[in-house]
């Protein structure tokens, strides 16, 4: 248990982009390897723990050095922010309508249509976030979508429109 906690703690030392790519896999591999060592006799587990923890510390240092000394345009060490990207299948007009709504520019008789567009946009973004394993982003879009639905309900009441 202490070994697993120490491993998780040291894993946090790695750069964010590296963690996004490998942390889950590393943890899974470590758990399987630890299970195997536990079944071995003698000091196998102690040796394994020592090697793993030292390996993580040197690995994290090496990754930070690589990140700081490598040209990001060549190595692509900065992953794109998927929240800023237009998801595939979402028309440009619809995407920017959502952006305008979020800036508070939606008003006038078209505001109901724009609110509906915004909900569709948020759903598309949420689906895209889920497809890219960006679960915090997906949760954020889910909250925004709920709020957008509430706005739409109020607008429909204001304009005496059916639900």
């Amino acid at each position: 248990m202490k070994l697993k906690r120490a491993y998780r703690t040291l894993l946090r030392l790695y750069p964010e982009d590296y963690k996004a790519m490998f942390a889950a896999e590393m943890w899974n591999t470590f758990e399987k390897a630890a299970e195997e060592r536990r079944r071995e006799e003698g000091l196998a587990l102690v040796r394994f723990a020592f090697a793993e923890l030292i390996g993580l510390m040197t690995g994290a240092a090496a990754e930070w050095i690589a990140k700081l000394t490598t040209d990001s345009s060549v190595r692509g060490r900065r992953p794109p922010d998927v929240r800023m990207m237009r998801p595939p299948g979402v028309p440009q007009q619809l995407w920017f309508a959502g952006a305008c709504m979020s800036l508070g520019q939606g008003s006038g008789p078209d505001e109901v249509a724009e609110a509906e567009n915004r909900i569709e946009t948020l759903i598309a973004r949420m689906v895209h976030a889920i497809a890219n394993h960006d679960f915090p982003g997906a949760r954020s879009y889910s909250y925004q979508e709920r709020e957008a639905r509430e706005d739409l309900r109020r607008l429909r009441q204001k304009h005496n429109l059916d639900e």
């Binding site: 030292i54 390996g55 690995g59």
Partner: peptide
């Protein structure tokens, strides 16, 4: 040779790049 996970994934990252 028994690679640690830190060594393995560091090498995999470089090989992927």
């Amino acid at each position: 040779v028994r690679l640690s996970t830190g060594t393995l994934y560091g090498a995999l990252r470089r090989l992927l790049e």
